[in-house]
Design a protein around this nucleic acid. Structure first.
Length: 346
DNA sequence: CGGCTTTGACCGGCGC
DNA sequence: GCGCCGGTCAAAGCCG
């Protein structure tokens, strides 16, 4: 059987607070690599609780906060708060009946409760920590091969919650985005296949899109290891004229939050690591917090150790949904000669 | 000296 | 077949 990919887009609560409080909470997403983001009417769907294949969610009272101290004050915030499990399933609130069968097939081996726990663990496994507040958007994807893949959309602060040690091995400008994508592999274990991609959201530059693929084959890395790159990067980023020559002035030193200059600019200091800056103290505390939370929930999961047969919502599952509200970028509007992108994408 | 980033080259999948 | 595109490789250089 194929390996199904995991698709989840997680946004922090702060995003809603700051940017979308007065907007109709319907959002549509697309990215620039053939993915299809669906749309979801959050208020409507949450209230209606259209739960194809997830009847356990029907018992959930969205206005009752039974979680870890995060309050829910409105329907809008409800979706942004606390129970990531609800969020994980939300993408399927709108799944038509035709696709519901697929959902059930995917989870044929699990009880609802089990699914719930495993999804929570899945997010933690890839991201290293569970988002305290999250919103999941359905991501409709059209792609062939594919392994597990977790897409997390975080603010700069959210980047620091990743406790794994990553080593950058590439960076590419991505069609359809003014921001390049950075490629990282896990540096704590030589055979570890875990990958992370980081790119700044072109729809909201205050967000970063983390894409985790493959699994760690080892426990959490040592802190020292993960800090090495952070310190180095921090130094370079805050040193205005580190002669990173050989690029003929094409290097753009990015300060926190500033956009890249152009998609053709290949050489960019890795801005995304800069947000780790707040340093060791913060990292340490977050890591500790991460474990504390785990123990609080009575889980004995070792993040990073995985079960290979664990399956989540697969890419193929989304394939048939692309005509149901997902939007695909029109690649013809990309001018390859000028490397200019229409504003509509960014 | 080890581990990191940078960056052009390389490679495979895909559409035309 | 060809070119585009995303992902990876690896040489070179940086840093503590």
């Amino acid at each position: 059987m194929e390996d199904w990919g995991l698709q989840a887009v997680i946004r922090p609560k702060s995003h809603l607070d700051h940017h979308h409080h007065h907007h109709h909470p319907q959002q549509q997403y697309l990215d620039h690599q053939d993915y299809l983001y669906g749309s979801i009417d959050i208020e409507k769907e949450y209230d209606q609780s259209l739960l194809f294949g997830f009847p356990h969610l029907l018992d959930h009272d969205p206005h009752h906060d039974h979680n870890h101290g995060f309050e829910r004050t409105s329907a809008m915030e409800t979706i942004a708060v606390t129970d990531e499990l609800d969020q994980l399933y939300k993408p399927f609130y709108q799944v038509p009946a035709a696709a519901a069968a697929d959902v059930q097939i995917i989870h044929h081996h699990d009880s609802d409760q089990q699914i719930q726990q495993e999804h929570e663990q899945e997010i933690k496994k890839f991201c290293g920590t569970a988002p305290k507040t999250s919103q999941v958007t359905p991501k409709l994807k059209k792609r062939k091969n594919q392994q597990k893949r977790v897409v997390v959309q975080v603010t700069a602060d959210g980047l620091s919650s990743d406790p794994w040690a990553w080593r950058k091995y590439g960076q590419k400008p991505i069609k359809g985005s003014i921001y390049p994508r950075s490629y990282y592999r896990c540096s704590s274990s030589k055979g570890c296949l875990a990958r992370r991609q980081v790119e700044q959201s072109c729809t909201d530059s205050s967000f970063y899109i983390l894409t985790y693929t493959a699994d760690h084959n080892h426990p959490q890395p040592t802190r020292r290891n993960s800090l090495a790159g952070i310190n180095r990067n921090r130094f370079k980023a805050t040193t205005p004229k580190s002669p990173t020559n050989s690029d003929n002035g094409k290097t753009v030193t990015i300060s926190k939050g500033s956009p890249f200059e152009s998609p053709s600019t290949r050489s960019v200091s890795s801005f995304e690591d800069e947000v780790f800056q707040p340093s060791f103290i913060k990292q340490e505390s977050e890591e500790t917090l991460f474990y504390d939370k785990f123990e609080d929930q009575g889980h004995t999961v070792m993040p990073g150790i995985l079960d290979d047969d664990y399956m989540v919502f697969g890419d193929d599952f989304f394939e048939g949904l692309e005509d149901l509200g997902g939007y695909k970028m029109d690649s013809s509007s990309y001018n390859s000669s000028t490397k200019q992108f229409p504003l509509v994408f960014c």
